[in-house]
Design a protein around this nucleic acid. Structure first.
Lengths: 252, 252
DNA sequence: GAGTGGTCTAGACCACGTC
DNA sequence: ACGTGGTCTAGACCACTCA
């Protein structure tokens, strides 16, 4: 055998097979690490490396003090661009239900959020998207969004100061009619979006606030809303990859 | 100090700061691991864990035998849904330039691809999207797409057999006029797409074929093309997260 | 061949959850 | 109190790259 796979990869493959073939069903606990060490004749570090890979693929849970379990697929489908009819969309907006809340409720969960508002200098990337001169401040509306009380994603919306100041956007509470309607009332109705999707490993702050298991990546969804050619809002949503998928419905 | 951050996180934070503040510029080599061990008074495992996090965030390169370097941002922007005019789109399609090739050339790179064709039983998820009865076979057209000779992404398109068989789709070569035009000629013109984006850690096969650095996640972009209500194609693209971002341009 | 990162081991101690 | 996973150490050997 000239080119053997690394041992941690072999272990991961084996466990992955057990899961995908149903020998280990969703909800089942995995054997404890020391037992896997015996089974595979590997040290704990090697076993943990294999388990980290499975966690990163979203197949197993992990958390200090708790046994690992095969994960139920509980990914929330978030509709970033829906084919719902114009009328249904207007109706939903009129009730002040944003797209995330609608998706969570369709999924049978109970959404909530914690809001903090700041005025600060935006990161360079945000300033560029908002076409703000260097050094200009922007309003940041940060929402930690939870489902059934558990942290689910982080949403930060950035607005130029002159748009947000003196409006309900600056209140750390729900905007009753929703921000899209509010912007329209303020004569900044968004006419088009540019959505950018990337992925990376979470930074330590995200890991802590979203309680992300080690090895699980995040998707970063950045939506820039334009009123004509003027950017009026940049919304950055950080989705742990094991909890969400983003769907766009598009005409050909 | 009651709640101290883990040491690997402190090290990662420190190095991240050096990079984002420009003390370490793109292209600069990082100090070797043993030197970082001395600097931070940590063991090699701990230092490596910090470095893996930075690699996962796309900040540094890694590869056996080579020093780590601060990464240039060389992310390709892939336009999954563009606001290019109807006419420009038709013109591009007429030349048989698919969206990926157009984006690579706009970026100044030279695209190429390696194609393999199989007829096989599709994974359950694909069969469901294509609305195929259990056990039915499908045509798989796998493309390893390269930029300037370096692997960049993996694209697998699945077609129901009755659509693909006996057409140029089954040839392991470029489809001169592009698959979209071909499908239209075959009276299966796609009228709408449903795009799904998720992220996860790469599996071992992807790691090998795409030469993905350890700790770097992938985005998985699944496009289902419908002719009316009938799915005619499922295209799954695997993008290493440090090499690509996906952009959707949308009406509000 | 020297230097780099990739893999692995065998131990240790700590933090958390459950009983 | 016990068992779990989370962190860390100090060593070892191997595979690769580059001068």
């Amino acid at each position: 055998m000239v080119s053997e796979r690394p041992k941690h990869a072999e272990i991961a493959d084996d466990l992955r097979d057990l899961i995908t073939r149903g020998m280990l069903a969703p909800g089942d606990p995995l054997p404890p690490e020391h037992e896997l060490c015996d089974t595979y004749g590997a040290s704990r570090g090697t076993v943990r490396r294999a388990l980290a890979a499975l966690a990163g693929e979203g197949l197993v849970t992990n958390g200090q003090g708790r046994a690992r379990h095969v994960r139920h697929d509980r990914r929330l489908t978030f509709h970033a661009s829906s084919s719902e009819s114009r009328a249904a969309l207007e109706e939903r907006r009129a009730r002040g239900i944003d797209a995330w809340v609608a998706d969570v409720e369709a999924h049978g969960g109970h959404p909530s959020q914690q809001i903090t508002i700041t005025i600060e200098q935006p990161p360079a990337e945000i300033a560029e998207l908002l076409q703000l001169p260097a050094g200009d401040l922007a309003a940041a509306r940060r929402r930690l969004r939870l489902i059934d009380g558990h942290p689910h994603n982080l949403n930060t919306s950035w607005y130029p100061r002159w748009i947000a100041e003196g409006t309900p956007i600056m209140q750390p509470a729900d905007v009753p009619q929703g921000v899209s309607v509010l912007l329209a009332d303020l004569r900044h109705a968004q006419t088009r979006y540019v959505d950018k999707v990337t992925a990376r490993m979470p930074d330590p702050d995200e890991t802590r606030r979203l309680r992300i298991g080690s090895g699980v990546p995040v998707m970063v969804h950045t939506r820039t809303g334009y009123a004509g050619d003027d950017p009026v809002r940049v919304a950055v949503t950080v989705w742990p990859a094991d909890r969400a998928q983003i769907v766009f419905e598009l005409p050909a």
